[in-house]
Design a protein around this nucleic acid. Structure first.
Lengths: 219, 219
DNA sequence: TCATACAGTTGACAGCGTCATCTGAACCGG
DNA sequence: CCGGTTCAGATGACGCTGTCAACTGTATGA
């Protein structure tokens, strides 16, 4: 049965978890538009104002969901990289497919993962307001999601380095990563017509892996 | 000075144009969230209900904006393809950069261009409602945007075929297109850290062009 | 000339994110 | 054990949104 909640910290942590789970579920079902703070609260057993005790707002909540997902993907790629039963090519193919599979199985989540970072452009005027706000809660901070996404990229980079050599790893790593992202994105948006192009996302991944494998051998 | 509007059709057409222009401008400024039917109407000199005479709703309006943009990009690539002063490689590089430049200069528009197509997944239940609705107005119909996007892809495919041969054109064309889309997307979202990867989007494009040029030569 | 079609206006509604305010119970120093 | 404090959560309110039904006035076409 359910553990009895005694301390306030435990109860708050449980609410936070429930909010994140509810948000992730609603995101899967109907995209960011369907993630209503009212509905999230209801599914977590609280009311519409409660999420503001754990996140600075809706954006912050979605960012936290993205951060957890990045961590999960990072773990997955880490497991691939350190699996001694896999060849270097298999590791690379697995990492690329891991990303594309998220696009396939959780398209709405995938789009949130690659949301535009808030403080990218030269907007510094009201940027300070946003930044200060999001510093209120350490979670939902874009920096948290950024760190998690970068860990994934680091793991990925190591896999590429083992295959194509340290020299080419960064350039070709970026090429592979962006290409996989593009494959996932166009498959997701429906702009990759497999009939028109006589090819599939999986075949494109194979070609990418083969190309980098060749680079590694001839270097 | 301004031409006097007499006929009702002219007036309506002018309003439609103004609505599209206002929507495109607001999209550039603040993304889809900033495209308010009230503000669009205000900038077009009408009120909030007027857009419903020309589009079935906000989604339909944004789809029409995307369709016009796809047509513009298609024209641009067509001009590249038929320019006798350019080499095949230059045509390919230009086409890829044309797409990436949209991502750079109009990031919000770019995301709308690659919006998920409505009728992709197996949702047929309420899908009929949506479809019948969007058939009311021939514009804003997703099919219009799809046709425009496909014309761009056809032009692009021809450029690749001239460089890599008919045999490889489709497979490598898809690879190039998805890769360019991924480069644009990750640069746009801020996930392509040029310091970390020791490379830039432009260098990645050059590598892609070189790879396909090699394929064309060795075939 | 007169009925009609139709672009555009207006009022209304439900739902949204967000904030200020309030409440009650867990906490903690004495 | 007790009384003040902190803080998770509830609640009311506000402005904004997309959407639709009902309405208005004018150009159209027979």
């Amino acid at each position: 049965m359910m553990e009895v909640m005694t301390t306030r910290a435990e109860s708050a942590a449980a609410t936070r978890r429930a909010l994140l789970d509810a948000a992730a579920e609603l995101l899967d079902l109907g995209g960011p538009e369907a993630v209503t703070l009212r509905e999230v609260g209801a599914r977590a057993g609280v009311t519409r104002g409660a999420p503001y005790r754990h996140f600075t707002g809706k954006d912050s909540l979605l960012t936290a969901v993205a951060a957890e997902s990045w961590e999960r993907i990072g773990d997955q790629v880490h497991a691939l990289r350190t699996d001694p039963s896999l060849s270097a090519s298999e590791k690379l193919r697995g990492a690329l497919r891991a990303l594309i599979d998220v696009g396939r199985n959780q398209p709405h989540l995938y789009q949130v993962l690659f949301r535009r970072r808030a403080n990218l452009p030269g907007q510094l005027g009201d940027g300070m307001d946003r930044i200060r706000r999001q510093l209120c809660g350490p979670e939902g901070d874009p920096a948290v999601a950024d760190r998690a996404a970068e860990r994934f990229q680091d793991e990925f980079l190591d896999i590429v380095a083992a295959l194509a050599g340290e020299r080419n790893a960064r350039h070709y790593g970026a090429l592979l990563l962006t290409s996989a992202h593009g494959i996932a994105g166009m498959e997701l948006s429906g702009h990759l017509d497999t009939d028109k192009w006589h090819t599939t996302a999986d075949e494109l991944v194979d070609t990418l892996v083969r190309m980098v494998t060749d680079v590694g051998e001839t270097t």
